[in-house]
Nucleic acid binder design. Structure first.
Length: 794
DNA sequence: GCATGAAAAATACCC
DNA sequence: ACGGGTATTTTTCATGCG
């Protein structure tokens, strides 16, 4: 019989020594189904040396059959490798586990150039070769499974054909379960070997919320209740926040301790760690929303409450918030415990709300690049791009290069002009639309069109990059050119369709998410090309893109000047000019004709302020908003006492042009700090741990603060943000840095915050108006206690 | 031994 | 574990002085 289904999850099983591919899906009538395919055999390729006849290699392998018992078939195929036609031997292997060893062995012979695609895992191979798309619809011939499978599903089938992809963007109704946990520890980070889970809060997209609490018993019961609840609701998608790195391991460890079977999947197996640091829950998509927090760079401190606030799910001011260090107190104190319960419930409500905001995008990204929904979030951008490329390569008969380690060698990037410092009125910003993708298309920059220096070729047949002189064949269209043209065209088409839809409809949401996914991949390809971890890495490809980029912007600057436009600033693909619409119009047209690239006015500033620094400015937009770029105010590693002040100063300067008022504000602010009228939290500085503590070569304040936290029993890992304050005392700054929860307002070295935070942030701006640093301090007690006392001692 | 300035380390931004 | 270019702060190193 024929079955149409939407693919939710895949897993690979071995039954009686034979591989099977399990596809978990939802059919058209919203039935949950499992389709098992036993037909597929994996393989790898041998590329013989140029002068070698492939048959001799096949013959030799046949003669040594005992060494390769599970090779079932070999065939010679015409393939391409970096665009060059090659004969390749496709070697089918009964047992996927044998591929690596067989290939390693075969590789040793000196008539073999490469063994390729040996590192493409079975389930990926299946998806790629059959054009099967996670979060996509397919049609397949099936029959009901003869042997019963214990699975929490409506029906199990055995595949009788391979699935055939159906192009359709709609998403079936999915059951979504959100969860969060609270662990109890009197001191320090809770450890699953000794500290229990005290609350598990769940919420579903049916609008149901539930809590399991260990108020009367230990956590055995609540874990059992949670498992039972998951089973009963039978979600397709489970969402959490930090669940991959924490919650699943914690719950699994607690369950194990209590001998509870932690079956939250669809086949009675436990959640297990998988590729890209993701936790796999068989038959469902386990999605950790924290993995999507990077999509929102405006949110500096990626806590659940901050992300929920930013996405409009639940405003911080309406939230019950409890610090990790206070959890024990709230749990023990019967009066305060309801607040902890409320906090936990709100966490899960936020998780579900964020899921609603993010899942459309995650689903579209998954189906676009071909990584399963539970993998696509945890996979780094490079791997998302790469999976897309791998699928495209298969369609084009291009062999996939093996992953390999390479040394890092830097190359030159973009041009940044020094800005004209000061305030400018009425400025237009023009920028190139998708500059690097456009250049890669225009000059056919691609791994398979690259011509190495020693290769002879007529200059007429290649595009030669300026400065670096890398050459690329003009014809045929390269791998990257075709991919980028396709992506750009696809996005244009989607956007046309969007125009015809109601923005509130599910179709619109899905398509809008799709065009965003397409954009993300388009813009990431240049970065991928320059990544040494990339399978298709060829340094000249990335180097040529930036070289043509530099040439493009330099020509643009020259023409702008020739047109009589005054250039204020330029960075990579943009020019900031005096807003003279007629000249700009003429200039843009000329650029488009001259370079074949599209440059367009992006925005205008009523007024803009530059200091002498590049990449830092503040513009006043026509709608009255401030566009603050690069300055302290948009950085996550400055205390609010500096950022808030700087923002106020910018506001006064750009809207009222009053430096006097700005100076006054600064003095008042300093006064308030000294009089302890500024809240403690505004003094906290957040910095990321970018490596394990032991690896730091210098004693930095945030690292020393982190060490103090570890002493308190907290477990820290790289990527964590450390919030610290600077306290009074002697010696180097790092000796006075304390985690903010271990200090109080009275400990603060207010003068440090004035001299090293508020004043520099203010002065950076006000120096442009001739204001000296000394003028920023409140006049009367200017040298005040600290300094006078200092001199007395001397 | 110590003041001083340059260099290195570290982070987070821009496009 | 996608790129290079840039600003900034704090620590650490090197140097010259006495």
């Amino acid at each position: 019989m024929k079955k149409i289904f939407w693919l939710l999850d895949v897993n690979y099983e071995v039954a009686n020594g034979r591989p099977e591919l399990w596809m978990w899906g939802v059919d058209e009538t919203a039935k949950r189904i499992l389709i098992i395919d036993k037909q597929f055999q994996t393989y790898f390729y041998i590329v013989p040396k140029e002068q070698t006849n492939p048959s001799t290699i096949i013959e030799r392998i046949r003669q040594h059959k005992h060494e390769y018992p599970t090779i079932t078939k070999m065939e010679i195929l015409d393939k391409k490798y970096f665009g060059k036609p090659v004969k390749a031997i496709k070697v089918y292997c009964q047992n996927p586990e044998d591929v690596t060893n067989f290939a390693k062995n075969i590789q040793k012979t000196n008539d073999v150039e490469h063994c390729l695609e040996t590192d493409i895992r079975y389930s990926i191979r299946y998806l790629i070769d059959n054009g099967v798309v996670p979060c996509g619809w397919h049609e397949i011939e099936v029959e009901e499974a003869k042997t019963p499978i214990k699975a929490q599903i409506n029906k199990v089938y055995e595949a009788k054909s391979y699935p055939r992809y159906i192009s359709e963007t709609k998403v079936p109704p999915l059951r979504i379960l959100g969860f969060s946990i609270i662990c109890y520890s009197e001191k320090g980070t809770a450890k699953p070997d000794k500290n229990p889970v005290v609350i598990i809060s769940v919420a579903t997209n049916n609008g149901e919320t539930r809590q399991f609490t260990a108020e009367e018993s230990d956590d055995k019961t609540i874990i059992e209740s949670f498992v039972a609840y998951v089973k009963e609701f039978n979600p397709d998608v489970i969402v959490g926040y930090g669940s991959n790195s924490h919650d699943w391991q914690y719950l699994a460890a607690r369950a194990k301790k209590h001998c509870v079977k932690f079956f939250v999947d669809r086949t009675e197996t436990e959640p297990h760690p998988s590729v890209y640091g993701h936790v796999s829950v068989t038959g469902r998509a386990n999605v950790d929303l924290f993995d999507y927090a990077d999509e929102f760079p405006e949110v500096k401190l990626k806590t659940l409450e901050n992300l929920a606030d930013y996405l409009g799910v639940m405003k911080i001011k309406d939230r019950t918030l409890i610090e990790e260090t206070d959890v024990a107190d709230y749990w023990q104190n019967k009066q305060k415990r309801p607040l902890l319960l409320k906090y936990s419930q709100e966490n899960t409500v936020c998780i579900l709300g964020i899921a609603k905001a993010i899942l459309d995008f995650a689903i579209q990204l998954s189906s676009l690049v071909g990584l399963p929904l539970d993998h696509v979030g945890t996979a780094a951008v490079g791997f998302r791009v790469e999976r897309y490329l791998i699928r495209e390569a298969f369609k084009k008969d291009e062999l996939i290069p093996q992953r390999q380690e390479r040394p890092y060698i830097p190359y030159a990037g973009a041009v940044v002009l020094a800005p004209k410092p000061g305030m400018h009125e009425n400025i237009a910003v023009l920028d190139f639309k998708a500059m690097y993708p456009s250049l890669m298309i225009a000059y056919n920059i691609s791994p398979d069109t690259y011509v190495s220096p020693e290769e002879p070729i007529s200059p007429n047949n290649v595009n030669t990059a300026p400065e670096v002189n890398h050459r690329f064949r003009k014809e045929p269209p390269g791998f990257y050119k075709e991919i980028l043209s396709n992506l750009i065209q696809t996005r244009d088409e989607i956007r046309r369709q969007l125009g015809k839809l109601d923005p509130k409809s599910p179709e619109y949401r899905a398509l809008d998410a799709r065009q965003k996914a397409v954009k993300v991949i388009t813009n990431a390809l240049y970065g991928y090309a320059g990544w040494i971890g990339a399978r298709w890495y060829i340094k000249p490809v990335a180097e040529a893109a930036t070289a043509w980029g530099r040439e493009t912007i330099q020509k643009t600057i020259a023409l702008a000047q020739k047109t009589g436009l005054t250039i204020i600033y330029s960075d990579t693909d943009s020019v900031f000019v005096k807003n003279e619409p007629e000249k700009i119009d003429k200039f843009a047209k000329e650029i488009n004709e001259l370079l074949g690239l599209e440059i367009k006015p992006d925005k205008t500033y009523t007024r803009i302020l530059f200091t002498e620094a590049k990449k830092r400015y503040c513009g006043l937009l026509p709608n009255g908003e401030l566009d603050m770029v690069g300055l302290e105010v948009v950085r996550g590693d400055w205390a609010n006492v500096a950022k808030d002040l700087q923002e106020k100063i910018l506001e006064v300067l750009l809207k009222e042009k009053s430096s006097q008022k700005a100076v006054k504000l600064t003095r008042e602010h300093i006064q308030n700090m000294r009089e302890r009228k500024v809240p403690y939290k505004d003094f906290v500085i957040w910095k990321t741990l970018t490596k394990p503590l032991e690896e730091y070569k210098v004693k930095a304040p945030h690292v020393e603060a982190a060490r103090l936290l570890e002493k308190e029993g907290l477990t820290l890992s790289f990527g964590d943000k450390i919030g610290y304050v600077i306290t009074t005392g002697e010696g180097k700054l790092y000796t006075r840095a304390k985690p903010y929860m271990l200090a109080s307002h009275d400990d603060l070295d207010i003068e440090y915050y004035i001299t090293n935070q508020a004043v520099p942030a203010a002065s950076r701006i006000l120096a442009m108006f001739g204001v000296k640093e000394e003028e920023l301090y409140p006049p009367k007690q200017q040298p005040k206690t600290s300094l006078t006392e200092f001199f007395k001692k001397d």
